[in-house]
Every structure is written in structure tokens, then in C-alpha cells.
Write a protein that binds this DNA or RNA. Structure first.
Lengths: 249, 249
DNA sequence: ACATATTGTGCAAGATATTGCAGTTTTTTG
DNA sequence: CAAAAAACTGCAATATCTTGCACAATATGT
């Protein structure tokens, strides 16, 4: 492997994860840690990243909308995302909605996984640029500035032509009685269409948002196939959800 | 084996694998490594690839051209963008291609301007999220990771339904004889369609890239209506372009 | 056709660059 | 403070680069 390639790989990795550990990189590229250390030093000298003890950090001003500090419950979301990754099989066709939990999922996606991702979300698409093996298809339309995703009839129409294996739904609010709800009506339209366009729907939801309701309804709980939270599947809080024939993870 | 044949083979290999090692090429073509070294040096001088220690990389290989300090000539591009803004009228419908100059334009766009922007570019769309009065419509499709914009038949098809007032074309390379050229064939297809879909086409180009050529042709100089560079319109370097009936700004 | 440039190619010697390792020093963490 | 992790240093083994040169292939001018 050429030095220049390692440099690209390192920069790429830093861009995706916003941080790296020298030991991880060394292992994944199969070179000594000294070599990586020297690479990172060189990149630091060129102001491409910030070297720190044990690793390196991205220089703050990256393209991503949600800089690290702005994502609430980041560890929790990463934990959920990690569980979700287990559901993804090689060559899967996946639908991803927006939201920071899904963004975390995109960030943590193993770079060696060969998949096709359809998404109307700008941040998700940006994030996946860094995954060389992921085919990314952006579903275009009018952009909702709040949700940072494409909305409108065009998106719904586009989705109707797709049948994906899996849909990852970053869920706003989840309640036993009212199901999945959202603040934004247009976003609901898109999510409804996404559920229709996938064989299985996986909802990623931090427990904080369980039992909370918003104005517009996306679907009932029984319409989702898998519910992933950061809690262990046996948690008391989740018990009521079992009755809906939903897989808890 | 002819030198030109080797060059073709090398470029081909680079474009397929996005990297080569001199030693591999030398062996597979049965010539000395010195010869390949000289070949690659020559191709580098012509901007066809990037020579590095031990091999060469594809030019299109940079994953995050827009992150960090990698935006070269930022002030120059801002200067160009500033000139371009003068062309935009209230309620205009605008097409924007990708590229860092256009990104600068999006960044500098006055926030009180009421406009509608169509773009296949992820970074441009992201940037315009911050623009409260701009309606942003993302043209969806398969994402080119190098160019960070949607490409493919779907994009071209989508563009055919639009007739915009103005198209801002971030131009890769511009040459008197060869017109506007690009590194990536798919991007050329999109840009061609964009030109078709606008009443007037404005090309933003730093003077550094004047008189340079890449592999695929987008259009002739006479196909663009306005050429904006950072130079004053009377600059000697621009004189030859006057004959093409192009507005210099 | 001939002699004369020009260009292309391979080789070799010395200079540089890259990389992993071992031993030592510094930093981090409990 | 002490153990562990990471960083630094010098070094040796390769690999790659540079340069000059000889010789062959090709082009040019008469």
C-alpha cells in the first residue's frame, strides 16, 4: 500500500468518524503503528487534522451539519446504531430516513459492507460519501430545512418505485396508543412512503422518546417490525411494546 | 510497445483502480521501471493523474475535496462568487452545479434574496439550508462520491422538466480550442443537461484553470453566455475569449 | 539516401525515502 | 506514585528516486 493511499484513508476515516485511534488504523491497514504515527504527524504538519495523544481529531469546520457536540445522547444513539448494524446483510438494499440516530448509524457502518442505500436525507447522503463500498441514491425533491431532507409528492412518487430489504426509520416520537408521530406533516408523508417501500421496517428510538406524542401520525406500532432502543430487550419499560408483535432489540 | 500505448494503459489502469504502483505496471508491460516513472511524470505534468512516491493516484480520488483547508484559492473564488451574485434577480429560478466556486457563491448569497435553486450537488444544498428565503430543490439520483453530486439518467431526465433563468456552472477546465472539459464523464452529462435547462449559462472559473484541458467535453465556449473570472474583464489573458461572443465579467 | 538532430529506453551509482524494530522517555490514568 | 499506553529516537533493511550516460529508434533536413 502506498503512503499516499494511507494518507487518504486516514483523512477519510477522520472525516467520517471525526476521530481516529492510531492503533485501529494501524491494524486495519496492516502496517506498524509507527508508520501510522508518522503519517498522522505529516498530515498534522499539513494542517489536515489535529494529532493528539493516541490518535487524531478532525479539524472542526467539517461539512456535517451536526457537529459532535450538538448531538444529544450521542453515546446512546451510537449504541442503538451498533445494534442496528447487525441487521444489515451483504448486498442489502436499504432505505434510511433522517435524524441523528440514523446519522450515527451511517457513521458507524462498516466500510467493507457492500450495500445500496436510498435516502432523502442530506446529512445521511453526505455521511455515506465516505463509504467507498456503499452505493448511495439520493431521493430528490424540495428540501425541508428543518428536517434536512427532501419532502413532497416527488419523493413519495420516487419511493413507490422501490422495494428495499430494510428501512431504518429514525423515529421522532413513539407511544403505545398513538404509535409513531412527528412534528412535521410533510415528513410524515415521506416516512409513510418509506415504510411502504421496504419489506421490513426498523425503528431506532432512544428510550427518552418512548411514550411521547407529537401532532402527526406516521404509523401504528404494529406497522414496524423491529424496535431498537438502547435498553436491553428485557427492560421493564419495553414490556408493554411486546404485545404489538414487534421485535425488540 | 509505443509510448502512447503505455500512457493509455496507465491512464486506464488508474481510472479503473484509482491507484497504481510503478513496479506493477513495469512488470505487466515488460518495460523498465524507469520508463514507467518517466511516463507517469509526464502524465502528471499534463494533469492526468497524481504521481506519488511509488505509484500514482487518480485525480478524482479525493474523497472530501470540500472539507477543511482543501479549498484552494478561497479568496479568489469568493471574489468570483461576489461578481456572480450581481446577476441574480429577485424571484429568479437558478440552477447550480457543484464545485467549490459555486459553493462559495451559495455561501455568499444575500439572505434577503427570494430565489428558487435547483441543484444536484450535496454540498450546495447543505449550504443553502442556512438560507431562509431560498427554496431549494435537490435533483436526486445516484451520488458520485468524487463530485459529490447526483449523476445519471434520472438527473438528466429531471432537468429536462426545468427551464431556469440562470445556470451557474462551476467549471473544471476551460480552453479556447476545447471549450469546457471535465475529469468525469458522468458529470459532463449532468452539466450538459443543465445548460439545456437554463436560459443563460454563467461559467465561474478561476484564471488558473483557463487554457487547461481534461478528458471529457461539456460544451464549447460559445455555449456559455457569461464568463466570470477573478481578473478584470480587460485583462490580456481574457482577450482571446472575447471573440466567442461571451460576456466577460 | 545520407548524415545529423531528437527522442526514447535501459542501466548503474549514489542520494532519498520508507518502514519496522528495539530501547528509552514521556504522558495518561487509576 | 506506579503501571500501562503512547511517543520519541536511532538504526538497519528495503524500496524508490535522481542523474548521467550509452545506445537504439525515430525524425529531419539536404
Amino acid at each position: 500500500m502506498l503512503k499516499a493511499e494511507r494518507h487518504q484513508h486516514i483523512l477519510n476515516e477522520v472525516s467520517i468518524r471525526s476521530r481516529i485511534q492510531l492503533s485501529d488504523i494501524a491494524e486495519s491497514l496492516g502496517v506498524s503503528i509507527d508508520t501510522i504515527r508518522r503519517d498522522v504527524k505529516e498530515l498534522d504538519d499539513k494542517n489536515k487534522l489535529k494529532k493528539v495523544h493516541g490518535g487524531a481529531l478532525s479539524l472542526g469546520y467539517n461539512v456535517f451539519p451536526f457537529s459532535n457536540s450538538e448531538v444529544f445522547n450521542k453515546e446512546m444513539k451510537a449504541h442503538i446504531a451498533q445494534k442496528a448494524i447487525g441487521l444489515i446483510k451483504e448486498n442489502a438494499v436499504i432505505l434510511m430516513s433522517g435524524g441523528t440516530t440514523n446519522l450515527e448509524l451511517a457513521r458507524l457502518l462498516p466500510t467493507n459492507l457492500d450495500i445500496t442505500v436510498f435516502t432523502p436525507s442530506l446529512p445521511i447522503a453526505m455521511q455515506l460519501l465516505a463509504h467507498p463500498k456503499a452505493d448511495v441514491i439520493l431521493i430528490g425533491g424540495k428540501i425541508s430545512k428543518n428536517a434536512q431532507l427532501a419532502i413532497g409528492a416527488q419523493v413519495v412518487q420516487e419511493l413507490s418505485n422501490i422495494k428495499a430489504d430494510l428501512c431504518f426509520l429514525g423515529t421522532g416520537y413513539l407511544d403505545l396508543e398513538h404509535g409513531l408521530t412527528e412534528f412535521d406533516y410533510e415528513v410524515v408523508q415521506v416516512k409513510k412512503a418509506m415504510i411502504q417501500s421496504a419489506r421490513r421496517t426498523v425503528s431506532l428510538c432512544i428510550s427518552e422518546k418512548l411514550n411521547s406524542v407529537q401532532r402527526f401520525k406516521t404509523c401504528d406500532i404494529q406497522d414496524i417490525d423491529v424496535l431498537i432502543t438502547e435498553l436491553p430487550p428485557e427492560a421493564d419499560m419495553l414490556m408493554p411494546y411486546k404485545s404489538f408483535n414487534v421485535n425488540l432489540i
